[in-house]
Nucleic acid binder design. Structure first.
Length: 339
RNA sequence: GGGCUAACGCGAUACG
């Protein structure tokens, strides 16, 4: 049954709910944990209906079952249902408070999230994830300064920043090019041995690049022992964005192509984000055939589908070439809705 | 064996 529950979480993490459900049915003697894994699986995949079905049907619930369901409502943006369940829960702990907090964030009520956070602080229900929730929420909403202020406050209160804190606040630094704070966070992350986290290092690459410090970004990229898809995409986008701001500068293209070939050689599947940087860079550098080549061959060579952004790039390319007929034809025949 | 928070995506009242 323990093996079965592990399988359920694994399938759920891959969004294979049908398989998860199949394993669940084949287990004899469901316990709280296997029921809760199903709830969490549906919740993570935004299927609140099925999550609730399992929540109602299970014979007994513990704190984790309640929080999984509360979080499901939160992520799906069901603020009212989330609040009712949170208030009805016999097991309110920091994790469930944070899930409730996230419901305000997801439903766009940042001010209410803040009020709720301050109440949590005075009642002592908060933990470092509560801080991270607010820092990330402000950063995502474009309130970069508020995000950085919350970070400073967390720092002053002596709460150690973890990798999620650092990633979140660096996002804010990057969007307003707050290089000084970014550097001091870099130093703090180094002291706290967080640089071995690929997410933290990737975010530093992004921060330096967006602050215009492409060289520092590349140094961090080169020093990384473990990279992931986002690391490659971030570094490629860095050269792409840098080149876009200086007309006719094709120096970045060599880097982009080199990185692209290197990531493929290392066995990474380029994503739609990777390819947007690649075809857009070629197009803006006037290398139209290369751009078209990657647009056409990538869906064949890699597990990637061209999206609206990629079609827009091609339409722009044909239009600038004066091939308005091709551009129009592409708009009419592309498999995605034009905006 | 199960629960909260995080990073890449040109731009966004429209042109480049």
């Amino acid at each position: 049954a323990i093996l079965g529950t592990s399988l359920i979480s694994t399938y759920a993490a891959w969004s294979r709910l049908t398989d998860a459900r199949h394993i669940f049915s084949s287990i004899q003697g469901h316990d709280v944990v296997s029921w809760t894994s199903m709830i969490a699986g549906y919740a993570a995949n935004r299927d609140v209906e099925n999550a609730k079905l399992h929540f109602d049907r299970m014979p007994q619930r513990d704190a984790i079952s309640w929080t999984s369901m509360i979080s499901g409502y939160a992520q799906a943006g069901y603020l009212q249902q989330c609040r009712s369940l949170f208030l009805a829960s016999p097991h309110r702990d920091s994790v469930s408070y944070n899930a409730m907090s996230q419901a305000y964030v997801v439903s766009g009520n940042l001010d209410q999230a803040r009020t709720f956070f301050e109440e949590m602080c005075s009642d002592g229900h908060h933990n470092s994830a509560s801080w991270n929730t607010m820092i990330a929420a402000y950063a995502q909403a474009g309130h970069s300064h508020e995000s950085m202020t919350m970070f400073r406050r967390m720092d002053l209160e002596g709460i150690p920043a973890d990798s999620i804190t650092v990633i979140s606040v660096l996002d804010a630094c990057a969007s307003v090019a707050a290089l000084d704070l970014g550097k001091s966070i870099h130093a703090e992350a180094t002291d706290r041995r967080l640089l071995c986290d690929a997410g933290v290092a990737t975010q530093l690459v992004d921060m330096y690049a967006k602050c215009g410090e492409l060289h520092d970004a590349r140094c961090i990229f080169d020093s990384m022992h473990e990279r992931n898809l986002l690391t490659w995409n971030t570094m490629i986008a860095a050269y792409h964005n840098h080149g876009r701001n200086r007309r006719g500068c094709t120096g970045g293209l060599d880097h982009i192509l080199g990185l692209f070939l290197a990531m493929v050689a290392e066995g990474y599947e380029p994503s739609d984000v990777t390819l947007l940087s690649v075809i857009s860079s070629f197009s803006h550098a006037g290398m139209f055939e290369q751009s078209i080549h990657y647009f056409v061959s990538s869906p064949v060579d890699f597990a990637v589908a061209m999206k609206l952004d990629h079609y827009q790039c091609m339409i722009d390319l044909f239009s600038r070439l004066g091939e308005l007929g091709y551009a129009e034809e592409l708009i009419e025949r592309m498999p995605v809705e034009p905006d």
